[in-house]
Design a protein around this nucleic acid. Sequence first.
DNA 1: TGCAAATTTACATTGCACGCAAAGTTGCAG
DNA 2: CTGCAACTTTGCGTGCAATGTAAATTTGCA
Lengths: 228, 228
Amino acid sequence: MMTLDSTDVGGEVRASLRERKKLATRRSLRRVALALVAERGYSHVTVEDIAEAAEVSPRTFFNYFPTKEAALFGADQDRITELRERVAHLAPGEPALTALRLVMVSDAQTVADELSELGGDPADWLRRMKGAATDPQLRAARAAQMAMVERAITEGLAERLGTDPERDPYPSLLAATAAGVFRASISFWAGSGGTVPLGQLIDQAFQALADGLPERSYVSHLTGKDNH
Amino acid sequence: MMTLDSTDVGGEVRASLRERKKLATRRSLRRVALALVAERGYSHVTVEDIAEAAEVSPRTFFNYFPTKEAALFGADQDRITELRERVAHLAPGEPALTALRLVMVSDAQTVADELSELGGDPADWLRRMKGAATDPQLRAARAAQMAMVERAITEGLAERLGTDPERDPYPSLLAATAAGVFRASISFWAGSGGTVPLGQLIDQAFQALADGLPERSYVSHLTGKDNH
DNA sequence: TGCAAATTTACATTGCACGCAAAGTTGCAG
DNA sequence: CTGCAACTTTGCGTGCAATGTAAATTTGCA
């Protein structure tokens, strides 16, 4: 129990064969799942299809991901916990809204990084996934995922502000708006093929919130087009 | 095809036996589903259980609800479409934020009404459901539901503002925040056993958003307690 | 009363998810 | 380099959600 599966070489951590294989299998499953879904649509891809394309047994799929959709956009429990910690403790002394903005920008960058990590053209992935993203099941799964993220933010905020979400709706409200900023920005960014600078989108949305929501848009100069 | 299943009597619409039975079955399924889930938790209640308790066949359950969770909190497609229309056209001339506030307050009242319609003590239902509400599956289902609502709001806002959500993230952001206000308020209200005035909660949250988010809470005087 | 339409039901099928134990790999100590 | 211990993969069986189909059953109405 609790073996390392890795060898420490002069401060560097070299993954063991076992570890590398596991990571390869995980990535293969994810890549194949995304490719199949982009091609046929979410509801026309079974776990069996994914397993077959990745050349593992269907049972092995579930050793890596708890559900079919987790292979598509899996933020595991560790990362969600880490998110809560960052919201709670990043930039202490700064206003909560500032900390949230920092965390959201950083996480958005992570999303963009993972997209590149997939191999191939990131813009191509975004374009291919666009059709599949209309599937209700997939939307539902994504919403559930974001709800978990939002919950983590709520808890982090509650800790940061020293308040209890049960007695004070403010952390929930702030978390909901932050998650909303994140979603709206990411989805707009994805729709642009990843060309619009994501960090700026998020920053401007937060600025709009901090200043009080305006009646109309807040980003026309980014797209170079008239938004109404 | 397209029979009325109802008899028009002097301007009043009297439901036919068929219609009344259908409504009774639907309500029975919902009530029984809620009761069983409150008692055992979502994942320990099968569709078969619900059907049996409601004295219909399992297949009939799916004639009324597309999924298990739809029986618990089902906003059907008609109501979601209607929501979009209200967001788009209610109080024309007023700012979008004002229209959103009106629609959200009104919908919150509908939620409260449906709770009473269930029979028994509303506060009792809230208390009983509280435990079951921690179930991840149920959370996921609720999130998916809210995502559909949020989407409808986005579309309604886009129409109202004459903008395209694909090119302008503003409707999405506004919809996300409005949905966030709704969720945070409802959940806080439910946590209070339905005692805190829901309309005021929502109004104050919108006011906070319109003014620019404050660093701390905005409702301390409602609970009568210190929120930090 | 009897026919047409709507509704319920039984039956079969597909797919997700998970527990379990057997078979196959990998890591490492001797 | 060999053999054991830990880990991973796999096959098999189970339960449950969800859907299609066609045969009863019930209701509305002439």
